[in-house]
Design a protein around this nucleic acid. Sequence first.
DNA 1: CCCAAGCTGACAGCCGGCTGAACGCGAGGC
DNA 2: GCCTCGCGTTCAGCCGGCTGTCAGCTTGGG
Lengths: 253, 253
Amino acid sequence: MISETAPSVLEFYHPTLLNDGYKIASRWDGADSLRVLLVEDDVTLGEAVRDHVASGDHAVDWMKTIDTAKSALATTSYGLVLLDLRLPDGSGITLLKEFRARGITTPVIILTAHDQISDRIEGLNSGADDYLVKPFNLGELTARMLAVSRRYSGRPVSLVRIGNIEIDTVARRVAVENETIDLSSREWAVLDALSARPGAVVSKSQIEEALYAFGSEIESNTVEVYVSRLRKKLGRDHITTLRGIGYRLGREQ
Amino acid sequence: MISETAPSVLEFYHPTLLNDGYKIASRWDGADSLRVLLVEDDVTLGEAVRDHVASGDHAVDWMKTIDTAKSALATTSYGLVLLDLRLPDGSGITLLKEFRARGITTPVIILTAHDQISDRIEGLNSGADDYLVKPFNLGELTARMLAVSRRYSGRPVSLVRIGNIEIDTVARRVAVENETIDLSSREWAVLDALSARPGAVVSKSQIEEALYAFGSEIESNTVEVYVSRLRKKLGRDHITTLRGIGYRLGREQ
DNA sequence: CCCAAGCTGACAGCCGGCTGAACGCGAGGC
DNA sequence: GCCTCGCGTTCAGCCGGCTGTCAGCTTGGG
């Protein structure tokens, strides 16, 4: 049961590919892969992890600061986060707590040099799924990543299918009745937020946060406008409005 | 959302209670607890874990051999298993693999003295969720138990079933005999108040409080109106009136 | 039978959401 | 440089459904 949704292979992506949505798309068709975000001061770790995964030239999405990590997490979907606690602009624990407070359930493994038991307990109690002390063995890291993502049963790694819509959150592709539809980045962000928990209600403010990556408050009906545009592209029936509450992906019924 | 379903407290049960199914059942009605099975050669660990958890007289279900563990797992449901690898009658890894092969997804934390990286990797790859090397800190064990079980209950259990009504709190949807019905936010609030403690009687003033969030007093029969509207949508028989007392979810007697 | 408590259809006001249009801006082509 | 195009954002007017109220009715208890 669980093994069906757990990726059998860990795949990593090279940061430079990130700017080109289409290249990623072609690579991420396989539902068996896992996109990993590494929040870490030191790029060499990412390269080491990537190198340790045998298959070819994959890499890790790599974010150096908490700020960039925040916006990455807000706008894109990852299957797993590796989080260094000591970052130039603050404590990773704070990020983790905020992350969890917003209801994001993506599994997180803390990587750190802090060896104290109290640190471990705090990390785990803040919502981390595992805690690994540097220096660690790469094989063990991989095994733990697999163990955690195996256990993770929340968001299907890649493909969300609702009615006759297919959303590949990793490839950034939507298809209605097998016909691929182009979305602008904002339109995608809205759809992405809606598909995070398919069928669940997502509030306007949650969508807004996904659109504007923490902070910058905008007082307007932007969300409504994008919902409207999405409906025009995807078909009227695929997004349900719940007055005063939010939106839900899926047909009315 | 997740923290709502994850146990906030670890509760442990004393082995002697195990023989009395009913006692356990009555104790385990609370969704906030976690029943733990310790498969371990040394009984003192169980006692230490139990002692470490502050609250009262709880204990750990304790199984000494793989054989007894097997039967325990076959007959009873646990939320978490702590597994020692070195048992008198064989390797815990074998048990774990068998366990997983049978499709049982209960989270497992391996406790062991084996410190080799290769052991860790093998353990994790056999289906364990975490791997702790003896001697370990009890606080860390507790934190890891919570982390694992938090992840295990990751998919929010949002479905409440009363009679042939199904209430999905996440999707904000109600289904009667598998037919989904959308509710307005006020209607939902009333139903929510009624379903807070299924089967219990909820007074009008309690419902009113749920509707109008303290303060704003409204002098009218709003509650009656919304009960009426709900009945129209859900069917007449699902909300019972108790004259002068309040309402109760569920069919008459 | 009588009264209190509860039920429900009708209705008007209003709030929240929808969407077409307009504008500014930056990227890219020529 | 100039034009075009696509995208993001704002705004205003429209619309429909939600909501609170009330009146007249039903129900149940004593």
